[in-house]
């Protein structure tokens, strides 16, 4: 979340429903996008978003810094996603990560301006995203959706900073390779 963005977290701490409404309205679509890309099930994603909202209201005392509200909310949702994976018996997936360099993801500057082609490429982008291993996808989504810092992504995913750096690095590399090798 950008630092300049003012969120009524202080008002929410005093139990103001209007403040909570403002906060949730701000984050609901990015949070849902993050969750549904991970669980790939719309109703499950909606349930996780609602559980995350309820948990946020109940446990706001555990948030130390108001400016971290966004990453804190995403961390709650990520915990629910992991629980969902466990329920779906998918938590044991382990993916091999290799060293490489990648700075950017494919962008539209390389694409033709034609709308149909652009939509096709967008669909391709999401198809490639779905092929990434879940831990890498989670890190990449947090980077894309809210532009969280590496520290914030580490807090959200409950991983150490080195692991997050590595996952983000390899996620970008894998996405680039998939993009370049697409038929």
């Amino acid at each position: 979340m950008p630092d300049h963005e003012q969120q009524p977290v202080h008002e929410a701490r005093s139990g103001d429903p209007a403040a909570w409404n403002t906060l949730f309205q701000r984050f609901q679509l990015p949070l849902y996008s993050f969750v549904v890309e991970l669980v790939r099930h719309e109703q499950a994603a909606l349930d996780i978003v609602q559980e995350s909202f309820t948990a946020a209201i109940r446990h706001l005392d555990s948030l130390r810094e108001d400016r971290r509200f966004g990453s804190w909310l995403f961390s709650i949702a990520h915990q629910r996603v992991v629980q969902h994976w466990r329920r779906e018996s998918r938590a044991a997936q382990v993916f091999q990560e290799t060293d490489a360099e990648l700075e950017t993801v494919p962008d539209d500057r390389e694409n033709p301006r034609d709308g149909l082609v652009r939509r096709e490429r967008e669909a391709e982008f999401f198809a490639l995203l779905e092929r990434l291993p879940e831990p890498q996808r989670a890190v990449l989504l947090l980077h894309f959706v809210e532009d969280f810092s590496l520290e914030e992504i580490a807090a959200v995913t409950d991983a150490n900073l080195g692991t997050v750096k590595s996952r983000l690095h390899y996620a970008k590399k894998a996405l680039r390779q998939l993009w370049e090798n697409r038929p």
Binding site: L29, P30, S33, E37, V105, D107, D108, R109, E122, F125, F126, L141, F144, V145, E146, D147
Partner: peptide
Amino acid sequence: MKTPRDLLL
């Protein structure tokens, strides 16, 4: 140019 964030949202 659309960013990945724009695409996702």
